[in-house]
Nucleic acid binder design. Structure first.
Lengths: 190, 190
DNA sequence: AGCATTTCTTTACATATGTAAATGCTCAGC
DNA sequence: GCTGAGCATTTACATATGTAAAGAAATGCT
């Protein structure tokens, strides 16, 4: 729980009052490797703080192929943010790639508390802005850089992740086939 | 000016007080075809309401090739949102593709007024969320669909735009070469 | 320790899409 | 109505990267 509060505080300093409000809303839970936190086609209702472990967000295209959109590496917030704020169905599933410890809360409750509370409203704005910025960053990287540059950036962004999850998940994140990732790794070591 | 207010109101209903605050901050201006509203490498400071015209947001990759990231078709908000909220340099330029009429304002001023104002804070949150959602939508489309589907969606999203701007801008938006777009158009009419 | 499963690499091959260049079209300006 | 500039299409060709399958390596389970 301290980790949760520390994490929020690192985004925006919070008052005692807001912290105690928060504390009441989050409950501890776990997510076993392979388990889903959100599924495609459902409406998201929960958000969670990822205290330990790795989660992937992925979508499935026409031909049934999976693409990893994001990794969440603790400490981080998980939950289908898009579905929560748009009240539309999920298009992106979230699945644990390792055993995870999480603290989850009802987003609806947070929204209720948020009503009229300037401080939480500001926190939510900053969260939205952060999501926007990291999406934007990834988008530009995907579009402007070639796969080996993206591979490098991924390694900086998620240090040590390659030891914890299979290469084909990395390849999928980079938007290339495992074969191609293998070629890149080979070239790099020349 | 009424159009500006109408546009904001369609996002979140605003109080009289906020509307009059707004009114003072925006001034009318124009953007001739080819002119830039924001340039790469600079720090953004302004935001604007696009009352008429079309603007493209684009970035340039390693090899100097341009890619259109977004079209803004009036009525819309322009300005390098990412640079404004992150206070980092622009990576994405914005250029008028037709003559435009805009209402611009200093983002810093908006932020100053925003301080402590719950209503504007909420407006800013919703703007951030909307940006996030439209980015997310585009990202999923780019990744999950093939170019001819994306072409279709683009036509629905920006009806009539093909009559106003050259095909190669459309191709660039779709992430394909003009040659390839031509092939798609040919196949479609078979 | 040994077997089974999963993951990674490599090879061979197919193909979608880009580049370059030539041709054809359209429309604005004279 | 002609001409030229800008744009779109088409052709020919090159190539990067995907798919499929086989082999090698690593990991985990009993």
């Amino acid at each position: 729980m301290e980790n949760l509060i520390k994490f929020f505080n690192s985004t925006v300093p919070l008052s005692e009052k807001v912290i105690s409000l928060m504390a009441g809303m989050f409950v501890c839970d776990e997510l076993r490797k392979g388990a889903y936190f959100v599924k495609t086609g459902e409406y998201a209702s929960e958000i969670a703080f990822l205290e330990t472990g790795i989660v992937r967000a992925f979508y499935v295209n026409n031909e049934g192929k999976e693409y990893n959109k994001t990794f969440f590496s603790a400490p981080s917030i998980i939950g289908s943010y898009a579905s929560l704020i748009s009240k539309q169905k999920n298009n992106v599933a979230q699945q644990a790639l390792t055993d995870c410890k999480i603290w989850k809360a009802s987003f609806h409750e947070i929204e209720k508390v948020s009503e009229g509370n300037f401080e939480i409203e500001r926190l939510r704005r900053m969260i939205a802005e952060n999501y926007f910025l990291s999406n934007e960053k990834k988008e530009l990287e995907m579009a402007m850089l070639d796969a080996d540059k993206r591979y490098l950036i991924m390694q900086e962004e998620y240090p040590g992740i390659e030891l914890k999850i299979p290469q084909y998940h990395i390849a999928s994140y980079l938007g290339i086939s495992p074969t191609q990732l293998s070629r890149i790794r080979k070239n790099r070591s020349l």
